[in-house]
């Protein structure tokens, strides 16, 4: 038994306590230096740990794909009929929106607005969830070597997913829009009132600091304001489901239903540069709606 002979002697015990005490003191007195020192090693360690992680994630994805393609097909016919109806409705709406877009283009040209560059994005796959229960975060299979840096915005074609908070060479951690530690500048699309979108403990989102005189109502859509953070203006965040007016409060707040079901997201796009500062990055994609590889 390898463990039998490895019980610590009293000397080793003292060394262990001394090491732990030293680490504790170092983390309290020099938190940034110690974490900065460890960050140099994060890259190579992250690469090594990512190998089994990606292997197991791809195995897991294979099983899920088999299940969804062959086993879980109950109710597909009904869903198909429903989707056909939705396509018909969306075709009609698309035609109206094309008309609006053409009118907007004409007016933009007339007013000589500066043309905005589209953001550069990189597609990534979700290979895991946060290692703890205390944060709502996902792990992506792309990291610093793919040009992903902390604070970059993460979206799907449906809307905002979250923000990159940590990267290693080949992976990155994205704090979801539903996490209470996340804050994104938001805008109510109809009234143009701005606020801050934060996650809630219950896994939804909340728009805070809305002006008291705002005429918002249930069902209003909230989009990114593009003022701060890694998101361009106009990406869908969620829909207002409940308005909270407290007596004597200086601002209103509203509960949001996030546009993206962050619990089921499998592929995402990481925004490497916002509107107006697009630079071509190797492997990047230029259009928000471009299909994933």
């Amino acid at each position: 038994m390898w463990m039998v002979n490895s019980r610590s002697s009293s000397g080793a015990r003292l060394v262990a306590v001394a090491c732990f005490a030293l680490l504790l003191v170092a983390l309290v007195l020099l938190p940034n230096q110690i974490q900065g020192l460890l960050h140099y090693l994060d890259g190579p360690v992250g690469h090594v740990v990512s190998v089994p992680l990606e292997a197991i994630a791809s195995f897991d994805a294979g099983i899920v794909a088999r299940w969804e393609q062959y086993v879980a097909l109950q109710g597909v016919w009904e869903e198909n009929q429903q989707l056909r109806k939705e396509i018909e409705w969306l075709r009609g709406q698309n035609s109206q929106l094309r008309e609006s877009a053409a009118a907007t283009e004409r007016l933009t040209a007339l007013l000589q607005f500066k043309e905005q560059a589209l953001p550069t994005m990189v597609a990534a796959q979700v290979i895991g969830r946060d290692a703890t229960n205390r944060y709502r975060a996902i792990i992506l299979n792309k990291g610093e070597s793919d040009g992903i840096m902390p604070d970059m915005g993460v979206i799907t074609p449906a809307g905002v997913v979250g923000r990159v908070v940590k990267t290693t060479g080949s992976s990155s951690v994205v704090l979801l829009v539903t996490d209470p530690n996340n804050a994104i500048a938001g805008l109510i699309q109809r009234t143009r009132d701005e606020g801050i979108v934060e996650g809630t403990q219950q896994g939804l989102a909340k728009l805070k600091y809305i002006p008291l005189l705002s005429t918002l109502r249930d069902g209003d859509r909230v989009v990114t304001s593009g003022l701060v953070g890694g998101f361009p203006r106009g990406l869908a965040i969620g829909t207002i489901t409940h308005i909270d007016k407290q007596e004597g409060a200086l601002f209103l707040s509203a509960e949001l239903l996030p546009e993206v079901d962050v619990g089921r997201v499998e592929e995402v796009l990481v925004i490497q540069s916002s509107y107006g500062q697009a630079t071509k990055v190797a492997g990047g994609v230029d259009l928000p709606g471009k299909p994933l590889p």
């Binding site: 946060d130 290692a131 940590k166 530690n181």
Partner: peptide
């Protein structure tokens, strides 16, 4: 603690401690 903190949004020192 260190390896898991690379794949979590949490603070490194909390995992280490």
């Amino acid at each position: 603690g260190w390896a898991l903190s690379l794949f979590s949004a949490g603070e490194l020192w909390v995992s280490l401690l």
